[in-house]
Design a binder for these strands. Structure first.
Lengths: 118, 118
DNA sequence: GCCTATAGTATCGAAAAGGATACTGTGATG
DNA sequence: CATCACAGTATCCTTTTCGATACTATAGGC
């Protein structure tokens, strides 16, 4: 059935956009995806994502934290250690991220060998 | 048009970002969502989304079309009529969009709780 | 004494995104 | 005749995003 909604939405009203607003940042998808595997340190994430700059990664992590999706724990050590992990809310994203990944593999990856093996 | 894969990205190639790249545009989520309900004309979509400009809507629709998610049919009439609908590939997004919507409703919407800044 | 690693900031500037406005052509309406 | 609606373009300009680079502090290694 046609899920048609028409509300004034200049304010907070479209849940699809709202969700996309939280996970749609340039690097958020991959960051979240990697964190699905467990706690990671800053530079580990960075090495997982060649191409992201320190500045960008910091910005994305801070946004994810501000949105309550990840947790940032700072250890008062030298050299500094900061660990990132998904919050409870962040973990609720798991099926979504996995669905995104499955869809991407099947419908966008150019290499056409989309093995949807979990 | 942003280059989707400017580099040999990270090792698993990141299908999550690939998917997000297609549906993560500023208005694509809502456009897709409305099209889930069936074929729509340009101005109908526009009226469903107050806040989008003609220029932006055109751009988003063209990108969706270029990515093969929607189909654009022009009728040689006066006044002009152009109809947009989901392609077969676009329809495969339905569960994803619905999941996005459900997650957004549950985890980000103000949902009866305005929470005005203190 | 210098280099490395850590997890960032600060600053600059290029590039892209996005908004506002004006314009197109034609048939029907007033 | 003037105006409206349609589905856009074209142009200009502001805002935001993003990358590159340089810098911080401190401990340990060489």
């Amino acid at each position: 059935m046609p899920p048609r909604f028409q509300k004034p939405f200049n304010s907070p009203a479209c849940p699809v956009e709202a969700a996309l607003g939280l996970i749609g940042g340039k690097w958020k998808g991959i960051v979240l995806y990697h964190l699905l595997g467990g706690t990671l340190r800053f530079n580990v994430i960075r090495r997982y994502i060649p191409g992201v700059t320190q500045r960008m990664l910091t910005a994305q992590l801070r946004e994810l934290e501000a949105d309550g999706l990840i947790v940032r724990v700072v250890f008062a050590e030298v050299p500094p250690r900061v660990e990132y992990s998904l919050s409870a809310k962040g973990r609720t994203l798991e099926p979504l991220i996995m669905a995104l990944r499955a869809w991407g593999e099947e419908h966008v990856m150019p290499s056409s060998d989309a093995e949807v093996a979990a």
